[in-house]
């Protein structure tokens, strides 16, 4: 897969800060993948996103989009991307459909809004004022807003934050469908479960530096414990046994246990992305800088 984005030695400093917020980060986003960008508050996630969607300028380093310097792109860049910000952003005294139509008419390419609105369950409420929408509805409308120009690349900032599990699932399914249709996604989030379920690769950013870029699977294998935990019942008690994964098929005790005992649970020693994040970066995701 070719790189759709290539970020090289990216540094950025806000005028009011003395220190760089981004301290020379490097990463690539491959065409057609879902790339997760993880880090605690203040780590530089949003700043990075703002730079690569051309909201923030005056950065140091190089960014290439589809092989061309991002600085050489003019307004046509925005025809190609869709952005969903963390907080719901709409004109509250206009209906959902008025909001969507207003923004859609600013683009050359136009997606099927009816299909999108139905997909996120908002079609019935399309003529309601956005002020009357719940937070969950506004977040779903944000995603429709990001997709209304049929973008090739989608930027999502904390897309499921504030959504109940049912709506979060709708959104995650929509993101997967976008990927299947050939789109590329950049997600910033601190919700590890979502990232784990959605992303092909993830980058960990802390204090303006990227510590790791890899697939969730590789990270779990690398940082997880290679062991199996078995729980079984014996004499009305739960017994727990741990086995190393090395030569598991030749481990007689393990083979006898699964053959003879009344097994209740079997777990591999995979760790969670959150644990890996803490291991790699030394900070928790909620930790403020």
């Amino acid at each position: 897969m070719a790189n759709i984005f290539e970020v090289k030695d990216l540094k950025f400093k806000y005028k009011t800060n003395q220190e760089n917020v981004l301290k020379g980060i490097n990463f690539q986003i491959k065409e057609g993948e879902i790339f997760g960008f993880l880090g605690p508050s203040g780590a530089g996630k949003s700043t990075t996103q703002k730079i690569i969607i051309k909201i923030l300028e005056n950065y140091q380093g190089n960014i290439f989009y589809k092989g061309k310097d991002l600085k050489d792109y003019k307004q046509d860049f925005f025809e190609d991307i869709g952005v969903s910000f963390e907080m719901p952003i709409h004109f509250s005294k206009m209906t959902a459909m008025e909001n969507i139509r207003f923004f859609q008419n600013l683009y050359k390419k136009k997606a099927d809004v009816e299909r999108l609105m139905k997909r996120v369950g908002l079609w019935e409420d399309k003529d309601k004022m956005v002020a009357e929408y719940s937070k969950g509805m506004k977040i779903r409308l944000n995603i429709v807003r990001a997709l209304l120009n049929s973008p090739t690349m989608l930027f999502l900032d904390e897309p499921t934050n504030g959504l109940d599990p049912a709506n979060a699932k709708i959104l995650k399914d929509l993101i997967r469908e976008f990927k299947v249709s050939g789109g590329t996604v950049f997600i910033t989030s601190h919700i590890m479960a979502d990232i784990d379920q959605l992303c092909d690769r993830v980058a960990f950013i802390v204090n303006g530096e990227i510590n790791v870029v890899d697939t969730p699977r590789n990270l779990k294998i690398k940082y997880g414990e290679r062991r199996i935990k078995i729980e079984y019942k014996e004499n009305n008690k739960i017994v727990e046994k741990l086995f190393s994964m090395e030569d598991l098929g030749k481990n007689k005790e393990f083979l006898n246990t699964i053959k003879e005992k009344d097994i209740e649970t079997i777990h591999s020693g995979e760790t969670t992305l959150e644990d890996i994040f803490i291991k790699v970066t030394g900070v928790t995701l909620d930790e403020k800088q």
Binding site: I53, K54, I55, Q75, D76, F78, E79, I81, V83, F85, M87, I89, H90, F91, S92, F103, L106, Y107, K108, R145
Partner: peptide, 14 residues
């Protein structure tokens, strides 16, 4: 108040 400017900034409008 509605932060709508951010949505305008990521459209093709100059």
């Amino acid at each position: 108040k509605e932060s709508t400017m951010s949505s305008m900034l990521v459209t093709p409008s100059k």
